[in-house]
């Protein structure tokens, strides 16, 4: 049985949105028979996450939270994973929905044995409608952005290799972009620039032919 670990923070509005939008991916993994472990909220500490990754050795790691070039941040911004602990990714395929992680943490992770690291080389942007902040999954401004972002993981879970998953993500992003361009709704249109920006900085490094 394949194992997926989902690490998701939820302590500000940004992480709350990304937290909620992890749920469809978690459910997809469960539906596909993955053993799914979710480390979330105040449990996203350096000790807890390192311990889980080291002992479980998951096939797939999904990180959702804030990040920098060299770090993934846990609850309340605690540094949870960094270039100094990148061996924690060994043997796994990882997706990080966190700003900038790809270019430092991702590179080091692959050096230390991560099969492939998928992430963003710049800031991850999204737009949200103020009235929908308690219902991120129904927010029409955020929805196309997160559905495009989730496409990579969804595709991996369904058996695609990393290259195919990235291509699928680009396809979904293009469809969302087209819908935004044609939409008369200014709320949906506002998602256009973040969609394009995120899609343009989504990349993978490591073995692109690998699959979970």
């Amino acid at each position: 049985m394949k194992t997926a670990i989902f690490v998701r923070t939820n302590y500000d509005l940004t992480t709350a949105y990304s937290f909620q939008w992890c749920q469809p991916v978690i459910e997809a993994a469960q539906g596909r028979g993955f053993r799914t472990i979710v480390v979330e909220k105040e449990k996203v500490t350096k000790l807890e996450v390192s311990s889980r990754l080291t002992h479980v050795k998951p096939d797939f790691i999904f990180l959702s939270g804030h990040g920098t070039v060299d770090t993934f941040k846990g609850h309340l911004g605690e540094e949870v994973l960094s270039i100094n602990s990148a061996e924690a990714f060994k043997g796994s395929i990882a997706y990080s929905r966190a700003c900038n992680c790809l270019v430092g943490l991702g590179v080091k992770a692959v050096e230390k044995g991560c099969r492939a690291f998928i992430g963003y080389s710049r800031e991850f942007w999204f737009v949200k409608q103020n009235e929908m902040q308690t219902r991120p999954l129904q927010d029409p401004a955020a929805k196309p952005i997160f559905e495009a972002a989730n496409a990579v993981s969804m595709s991996l879970i369904k058996g695609s290799n990393v290259r195919e998953a990235i291509e699928q993500s680009h396809k979904v992003a293009i469809e969302k972009i087209k819908l935004a361009i044609y939409s008369p709704d200014p709320i949906v249109k506002a998602s256009l620039a973040p969609l394009i920006s995120n899609d343009s900085c989504l990349e993978a490094i490591g073995d692109l032919e690998s699959r979970i």
Partner: peptide, 19 residues
């Protein structure tokens, strides 16, 4: 000019920079 066209009830999240 582009930002001026964005409806006022929307906000942008830019990672740890905030909203």
């Amino acid at each position: 000019a582009r930002l001026s066209a964005i409806p006022p009830n929307l906000s942008f999240s830019i990672g740890s920079h905030g909203d």
